[in-house]
Simulated scan of single mutants.
Amino acid sequence: MAAEQTAPPEIRPETGGKPDAAVVRDALGVGVAVGLSGFAFGVTSAGSGLGLLQTCALSLLVFTGASQFALVGALAAGGNPFTAAAGAFFLGTRNAFYGLRLSQLLALPRALRPLAAQWVIDETTAVTLAQPTRRAARIGFTVTGLTLYVLWNLTTLAGALGAQALGDTDAWGLDAASPAVFLALLAPMLKSSTERITAALAVVLVLAMLPVLPAGAPVLVAALAAPVVLFLKGRSTPGETGADAGARTHAAAPGASEGIGNSAKGQAR
């Protein structure tokens, strides 16, 4: 019987999985589509006052779009560099949780894990988790990460050089690129009503704090939206009330009555 044991439920056996070509095709599609948006970051970063080397270093070392846009956006608004970096850090902490999940699925050698950690972002996580086998997961993660990392850095360089050639980016309205691209990256992630409510509350908090806090600080206050929504959601569904219990008992009544009736018939026989 030991020989018939199957793989863990999250990774099915390697036989009958998704063809490698299909995995590569899907991974390339995600990597190319998202990687091209690095151009917007390059333009925005250069327009916020960062130099060419600083802009490219952010994409090479940070490599998480939302955090990068948050950082340069806060700096462009005149925020303190430390406050801007704190906001970017909090946005990037989600990647640590992604890494915990991907480490189980990919089971990479220890020597490769520090290198692979650089590619743990939203897109690589989504492609990896969609695969049926460990082999497909590794291919999806590698192709998505490599494609996205190369394209993101190349387009960042192109965007920064283009912004320098344009001169005053504010005259072209390119200061709107940062919030626009940030919203474009964020919107597809808001799938449940709880997530949408949290995002809406975060926007309200930011708008309320803009007149009273220094630039870069409102995004830190917006982080309070998540625990507030979770607290209110927990208060609205505090376990099972008497009404809930009554409703559930009423819903189960037909089956319960039938069971009691059958038991009585059996005893009568």
Rank of each mutant, 00 (worst) to 15 (best):
I197T: 15
T194V: 15
L174G: 02
V127K: 11
A243E: 13
L224H: 08
A187V: 10
P132A: 14
V34L: 12
G246R: 14
Y98A: 08
P214N: 13
G255E: 07
V203F: 14
T124C: 05
A111G: 03
G38F: 07
L157D: 01
L50N: 07
T55W: 08
L112E: 06
V228S: 12
E195S: 13
L28F: 15
L112M: 13
P218C: 13
F90N: 01
P254L: 05
G35S: 12
V206Q: 11
R235P: 00
P179Q: 12
L58T: 02
Q68D: 03
A111I: 13
T169L: 12
S178L: 13
V181A: 08
A116P: 00
S37M: 13
V228I: 15
P238Y: 14
S59W: 05
A256M: 05
G51C: 08
G42P: 00
S45T: 02
T169D: 05
E240C: 07
D175W: 02
A96I: 15
V229S: 12
P132F: 03
L201A: 15
S37E: 00
A116Y: 09
V23E: 09
C56G: 02
G38Q: 10
G159V: 07
L106D: 06
L100P: 03
S59M: 03
G38K: 10
G65M: 07
I139C: 07
A57C: 00
L52R: 05
S67L: 01
G140K: 11
T156Q: 04
A76C: 01
A86W: 02
K191A: 10
M1N: 11
L220H: 04
E123K: 07
I11G: 06
A222W: 09
T169F: 05
A215V: 04
G16Y: 14
S59P: 01
T83K: 01
V43I: 15
A27V: 07
I121W: 04
F97P: 00
T156W: 00
A130V: 02
K265T: 08
L36D: 06
L50P: 00
Q118N: 02
A180V: 09
E4S: 14
N80G: 09
L100K: 05
G49I: 04
E195N: 06
A2R: 12
V127F: 04
F63L: 04
G266R: 09
W119T: 06
T64W: 03
L60H: 04
T241F: 06
R269G: 06
Q164K: 14
A33I: 03
L161P: 00
A85G: 10
L53G: 03
M1W: 10
V181H: 04
L190T: 04
G99L: 08
A160F: 06
A223L: 15
G162W: 05
I121S: 05
F97S: 12
A84F: 06
I121E: 07
A70P: 02
L105I: 06
L146F: 14
A247H: 13
A200H: 13
L53S: 08
G38E: 10
A245D: 07
E195G: 05
A268M: 08
A84N: 10
Q131E: 08
L129Q: 10
A84V: 11
S103A: 14
